[in-house]
Design a protein around this nucleic acid. Structure first.
Lengths: 149, 149
DNA sequence: GTACAACAATTGTTGGTACAAATATAACTA
DNA sequence: TAGTTATATTTGTACCAACAATTGTTGTAC
């Protein structure tokens, strides 16, 4: 299905605008699927993103700014996302003793267990979403999207 | 810049997952720019989207479900988006007399004026965002993204 | 014609986004 | 070392997203 059909546009759209709309629309399609997978686990895409960043630290605590610069959505309010993870016992926060302005956030064993449970589901979801794409097409798509940054 | 650099990932990401993340990340980049343009006018991307849909009706009133199926983000709460547009006098709502369950929403002259003012800005913004893309690359990108739907 | 299902929109609630302002600590400078 | 600036996070506010529940209306089956 093309974009015009998806958003039921009657008039033709100029190529640049069409591409911009298409990127946003495609992102929504993908996000809906990811959110659906995460829903039974009671965490949002953003919280999942933060948990994976924390695991990527391999034991080293992360402070808020580190998390923020690695997030997909950099504008979200990281303090409150981390609050939610702490409420659910998936992360712990402490004050950095060498620089008391900073906080140190680590993933808990519960958080690691949760990721171990969810990861195969999101992995196979990604494969399903892109099942019609050849390796070549994936590379092309990635290369083109990289040009935006 | 590639995705790994953008999200400062140390470990390599599998191609399908990388593409999924890249779509979401790219969408954020684009959305930030669009939101920046709309900000001085006091409307959100979604409100702008709804206004353009209303104009596309060419005088014919739209009901909520029509708007919803044409929106980029179909999951947002259209009632309240329209409420905001009505507050700002960019749209008007009345009850459909032939089927009192439905509402009829039309864009006002004020709304039309606003679009006339904003449209050239978003158009040139889209051109700038994609200035490094050839027509061929735009087509390729659109075709690949269309495969997701 | 009454009961029930289907439909269209609204309302309520929770969490997320965007952004400004405030707080707290550290670093710098005269 | 007192005062200023920079850094890191938190808090406040308004709006948006997601989704469930509710209200009001229409269509349908008996």
């Amino acid at each position: 299905m093309n974009l015009e059909q998806a958003i039921k546009s009657t008039t033709p759209i100029n190529p640049h605008t069409k591409t911009v709309l298409n990127i946003m629309y495609s992102s929504r399609i993908v996000e809906e699927k990811v959110a659906e997978i995460l829903k039974p686990f009671g965490i949002s895409m953003q919280q999942y993103n933060v948990l994976r960043i924390l695991r990527g630290q391999k034991g080293k605590p992360a402070n808020l700014s580190t998390i923020q610069e690695r997030m997909i959505n950099k504008m979200s309010n990281t303090t409150r996302l981390v609050d939610k993870l702490i409420e659910k016992k998936y992360a712990e926060r402490s004050i950095c003793e060498s620089n008391r302005r900073k906080v140190e956030i680590v993933i808990t064993p519960d958080g690691m267990d949760l990721l171990r449970e969810i990861d195969p589901l999101t992995l196979s979801n990604n494969n399903i979403i892109l099942k019609d794409f050849s390796m070549n097409e994936l590379n092309t798509l990635n290369t083109l999207l990289d040009k935006l940054k």
